[in-house]
Amino acid sequence: MATPGNAEIISSVLDRVTAGYVFPRRAAEVDRALRARLAAGEYDALSGAALCEAVTGHLQEACPDRHLRLLWQDEPRTGTSGCCGRTSPGRSPHPRTRARAGRRSSP
């Protein structure tokens, strides 16, 4: 199984933000800002926790919402779906995304 590259990881995060963030205009701003950084190669030399820290900082710089973040998980994720819809048989080599829409479900 191939490990997703940074472009695939970041695209997955941005797809989740634009699909579910409660403020569509802000989601579009986040998308433009991070895709510009991706195109400029700002994430090329990063991986793991360092990638997540950089992306989280850029997400929150573009939209000051502490719910927007990219989380890294070192523990194995046997039999669970990863951020890009793949099943991870062991140690997760890619970040676990958490892009919340800002909505809460009713109890």
Rank of each mutant, 00 (worst) to 15 (best):
H94C: 13
R69L: 07
D15G: 14
S106C: 07
G79A: 03
Y43I: 08
A33W: 02
G102Y: 08
G90I: 01
V17Y: 05
G90C: 09
P93I: 03
A40F: 03
R100N: 10
C83D: 01
L38G: 04
A2C: 00
A40G: 08
D44E: 15
E61P: 02
R104W: 06
V30N: 06
E61V: 07
R26M: 12
E61Y: 03
L38M: 14
A101L: 08
R98A: 12
S11R: 11
I10R: 02
S11I: 01
P89S: 14
R96E: 12
P76I: 00
G85D: 12
T97D: 11
L38I: 05
S12I: 01
T97W: 11
T97I: 09
V30P: 02
C83Y: 00
D74R: 07
D15S: 15
L68M: 13
R98F: 12
L14P: 05
V22G: 13
P107K: 08
C83N: 04
A50C: 11
S47P: 06
I10Y: 02
A99E: 07
S106G: 11
A45G: 14
S47L: 10
G57C: 08
R77L: 06
F23W: 12
D65T: 07
L34V: 05
G90P: 02
T3M: 03
S12G: 15
H67A: 11
G90H: 12
A2P: 13
T97N: 10
L34Y: 06
L70C: 09
S81L: 12
Y43M: 11
L51K: 13
R96N: 13
L59D: 05
H58Y: 08
P89A: 14
D44W: 05
P24Q: 13
Y21R: 05
I10K: 04
A49C: 07
R32F: 04
R25T: 14
G102K: 09
L70S: 05
R103Y: 10
T87D: 04
V22L: 12
S88I: 12
G5M: 03
G48M: 10
S12P: 00
C84I: 04
D31V: 03
G57T: 08
Y21H: 12
G5R: 04
R103A: 13
I9L: 09
M1H: 11
P95S: 07
S88W: 05
S92E: 11
V22M: 11
M1E: 11
V13C: 13
G57K: 11
D74Y: 01
R77Y: 01
R32V: 10
G102S: 12
R66H: 01
G82K: 00
V55W: 03
F23K: 14
L46C: 14
E61L: 14
A27W: 03
R16D: 15
A62E: 06
T80E: 11
V30T: 12
A2G: 04
G102E: 12
L71Q: 09
V55C: 08
A101C: 15
R66W: 00
H67K: 08
R96H: 12
P76W: 00
A2E: 10
A40Y: 06
S88T: 11
L34T: 03
T87G: 06
R91K: 10
H94V: 07
Y43K: 10
Y43R: 07
T97H: 14
L68T: 01
A40D: 15
P4S: 09
S11H: 13
G20H: 13
D65Y: 04
G79W: 01
G102D: 10
Q60H: 09
D65S: 08
S105V: 06
V17K: 02
R96D: 08
C52R: 02
